[in-house]
């Protein structure tokens, strides 16, 4: 049974979500603030983290960034406001997905399943041999990515996105296409997931993230990979 770490400061919301997740058959750990949450991630290595944005002390965005420094554990943000800014900030801080409060238990369950499925073993057919783009080497067989000979730490979603893009060099892929092929979501999935993941990927593979040479935006259409 997947172990879920819930980081939520409001005791009633925490209790409600705990009851709901246990009812659905999950094993749940609950913590009331960011520090305790980060400690729990180190101690228990949960399968997925459900993280509230509004937390006392370090807020959800900061917790997310700090967790990303040492762990690729899937994170679903609970945005109390679901403001567009919050969603984008959460995804850019490294969250894998987000949900607006109040969240229906069934929606939460579906989201958790989707996130766990995505970060699970990749179903893409491994292609032999490394592909080279300048000093970036993507080995689609061993799933190892290096830049200038240095090994790059990519989260499962970043790796999947890079594999998909590197597999179609020179082609413009729309955000909807990438959502369908990489995230496996239906047509109306949130394309901001793609934008945020692209941003994080650029920060790792580009020389200057703000002036991408490999992963270019084709305005209004999508993204194109290639030198």
């Amino acid at each position: 049974m997947p172990q879920i770490l819930l980081i939520e400061d409001d005791p009633h919301v925490r209790e409600g979500l705990e009851i709901a997740l246990r009812h659905l058959g999950h094993e749940v750990l609950a913590r009331g603030d960011g520090e305790a949450g980060i400690a729990a991630i180190c101690a228990y290595e949960p399968d997925v983290v459900v993280l509230d944005v509004m937390l006392p002390g370090a807020d959800g965005f900061e917790v997310c960034r700090r967790v990303r420094a040492f762990s690729a554990v899937p994170i679903v943000m609970l945005t109390a406001r679901s403001d567009d800014m919050d969603v984008v900030a959460g995804l850019e801080a490294g969250a894998d997905d987000y949900l607006a409060k109040p969240v229906q238990p069934r929606v939460l369950e579906a989201k958790l399943k989707a996130v766990l499925r995505r970060v699970g073993p990749t179903t893409m057919t491994p292609l032999a041999g490394p592909v080279v783009f300048g000093d970036l080497v993507v080995d689609r067989g061993s799933l190892v990515v290096t830049k200038g000979g240095r090994h790059l730490d990519l989260t499962p979603m970043e790796l999947r996105l890079l594999l998909e893009l590197a597999g179609n060099p020179g082609l413009v892929l729309s955000r909807q296409q990438l959502l369908a092929s990489v995230w496996g979501q239906d047509y109306l999935g949130d394309s901001r997931l793609v934008d945020a993941c692209i941003q994080r990927l650029r920060a790792k593979i580009e020389d200057v993230a703000a002036e991408p040479q490999l992963l270019r935006t084709v305005r209004g259409f999508g993204y194109r990979f290639g030198p």
Binding site: D10, G16, I19, A20, H23, P102, V103, Q104, P105, R106
Partner: peptide, 8 residues
């Protein structure tokens, strides 16, 4: 949010 969570 607390109430919605337990409706199911």
């Amino acid at each position: 949010a607390a109430m919605t969570a337990v409706t199911d």
